[in-house]
Design a protein around this nucleic acid. Structure first.
Length: 204
DNA sequence: GAAATGATCGTCT
DNA sequence: GACGATCATTTCA
């Protein structure tokens, strides 16, 4: 796998369950164009395993046209359309061929809030937490599209940036996942405890 | 607040 | 032909 640096290695070499908490507090940075940079701090993720044991993972039944990116290199994006309407984004983790990924469920918006509000169709006085507190909302706010399928988060316009040395260490909480019908009992949802920008879906 | 509902479409069975 | 890793809105308590 073409990962460079301690950050990327620590993220993806110990399995997606181990990587999940280290994604909390990391930054998602999208340089869309001059004067349009959108940044969010990740506050909620869900792990979907790649060993075939996780019935709600899109990789569960093996590789298909749709989930091909899940089996690709770690640090790349697996994007899909949900319910025919929304877009959801995952960070591929673990080695190629495994099919493990982390679903990005919520971010705290840090930069580009005006553009996020506009594209989300929210009123100017809508609270900041409404911008990215859900997997579909997050993609809309950060302008992640199906076109970004398979692209790398380690270089390019859209990047994952590690928690910075001065950043407070997030208090990590854990629960079952949201909105799934199989594998409900698995505690694979990780989020920052008491953070206002966490999604309000109900754990299974 | 919590729960129910309809919108909408690509992918896989 | 059925089914979602969702969201916004409505309805009820």
């Amino acid at each position: 796998m073409q990962l460079r640096g301690r950050f990327q290695r620590s993220f993806f070499e110990h399995g997606c369950l181990a990587a999940a908490p280290s994604l909390l507090g990391a930054y998602l940075v999208h340089r869309i164009g001059p004067g349009d940079e959108r940044v969010g701090r990740i506050v909620e993720v869900e792990a979907y395993l790649g060993d075939g044991s996780d019935p709600s993972s899109h990789s569960h039944r093996g590789e298909t046209r749709r989930n091909r990116a899940m089996f690709g290199p770690p640090g790349h994006l697996y994007v899909y359309r949900s319910y025919g309407i929304h877009i959801c984004a995952n960070v591929v983790c673990e080695a190629p061929g495994r099919g493990a990924a982390l679903l990005l469920r919520a971010v705290e918006p840090l930069a580009g809030l005006a553009a996020m509000r506009a594209v989300r169709g929210l009123r100017p006085d809508a609270p900041d937490r409404e911008l990215g507190n859900g997997p579909g909302k997050l993609c809309q706010a950060l302008d992640i599209r199906l076109d970004d399928y398979g692209t790398s988060l380690l270089h390019g316009r859209l990047r994952l940036r590690p928690r910075q040395p001065g950043d407070p260490h997030p208090r990590v909480a854990r629960s079952t996942r949201i909105g799934i019908s199989k594998g409900r009992e698995r505690p694979y949802r990780f989020f920052v405890a008491d953070h206002p920008c966490v999604s309000h879906g109900r754990p299974s």
